[in-house]
Simulated scan of single mutants.
Amino acid sequence: MKSLAIVTGVGPGTGASIVRRFHEGGYQVAMLARSAERLDALAKELPDAFAVPCDVSDPPALHAALDQIEARAGAPKVAVHNAVGGAFANFLDVDPAVLERNFQVNVMALMHLGRWAAPRMEKAGGGALIVTGNTSAERGRANFAGFAPTKAAQRILAESMARTMGPRGVHVAYLVIDAAIDLEWQRKNNPEKPDDYFCRPVDIAEEVWHIAHQAKSAWSFRSEIRPFAEVW
């Protein structure tokens, strides 16, 4: 049986590219997202990828989805938490409920996914749990009050998980993406920017693949990528 990768947040950009990279690398891929239509379309293209529609902010639904995946494909070798809840407003304007919702997606879903996946990976002899993050995990800009606190908490949770699971043979890593990802809405919001401004989802996926297959003697926790022209 092929190794299993689980990817949450399978949208048209980074999530889909991660799915394609692991499928290309010989994995079965379980795809989680709220849009069943999008997942089904991708599954038709990729014979070893299968759709598991799920709102990861709903713990019972997430656990039911994960149990469904295990019944079909066994324990995961890789899990990528790419689902993200975002918002752009300062703390005076943002609805506190938005922050709470984003916390459920970015932090609590990782907690539930990790508690489910890590023991199974350990029992199976190892694996990798990778979180796609960004620079909001490290700074609190004014208009990111409904988002950055959740990404900071996500990074710290991932680090705690890494310290627990690393000695047990499970690699937990946090990928900081310091970039505007090359998506249609980003292009519309930045029409004057050159191609070099954007980070391509396929290149992000390649880095996720690399992290998932690092040698045990050289595991990284915090990896960081950005376009070569990015000012930082």
Rank of each mutant, 00 (worst) to 15 (best):
A73C: 08
G74F: 14
G74Y: 14
G74E: 04
A75F: 07
A75K: 10
P76D: 02
K77D: 14
V78S: 12
A79C: 12
V80W: 03
V80Y: 01
V80E: 00
H81S: 07
N82E: 10
N82T: 11
V84G: 11
G85W: 13
G86N: 08
A87I: 08
A87D: 12
A87F: 14
F88M: 06
A89V: 01
A89W: 01
A89Y: 01
N90L: 05
N90Y: 11
N90H: 12
F91G: 08
F91M: 14
F91E: 14
D93L: 12
D93T: 09
V94P: 08
D95W: 13
D95P: 13
D95F: 11
P96E: 06
L99S: 12
E100S: 11
E100F: 12
E100M: 09
N102V: 07
F103I: 02
N106L: 03
N106M: 07
V107F: 06
M108A: 08
A109K: 09
A109P: 13
L110E: 04
L110G: 03
L110F: 15
L110D: 05
M111K: 06
M111A: 07
L113G: 05
L113Y: 06
L113F: 08
R115I: 00
W116G: 03
W116P: 02
W116I: 07
A118H: 03
A118K: 00
P119L: 05
M121D: 11
M121R: 13
E122I: 05
E122Q: 13
E122R: 13
A124D: 13
A124R: 11
G125T: 00
G125W: 10
G126I: 11
G126M: 04
G127S: 07
L129A: 00
L129E: 04
I130E: 03
T132L: 09
T132D: 04
T132F: 08
G133F: 03
G133I: 02
N134T: 06
S136M: 10
S136N: 07
A137F: 15
A137G: 07
R139T: 01
G140C: 10
R141Y: 13
A142M: 09
A142I: 05
N143G: 04
N143H: 14
F144I: 04
F144H: 09
A145F: 00
A145N: 01
F147A: 01
F147E: 04
A148R: 01
P149H: 06
P149Y: 04
T150G: 10
K151W: 03
K151I: 00
K151N: 03
K151F: 06
K151R: 14
A152W: 00
A152D: 02
A153C: 06
A153Q: 05
A153K: 07
Q154A: 15
Q154N: 09
R155E: 10
L157Q: 08
L157C: 11
L157I: 10
A158E: 09
E159M: 07
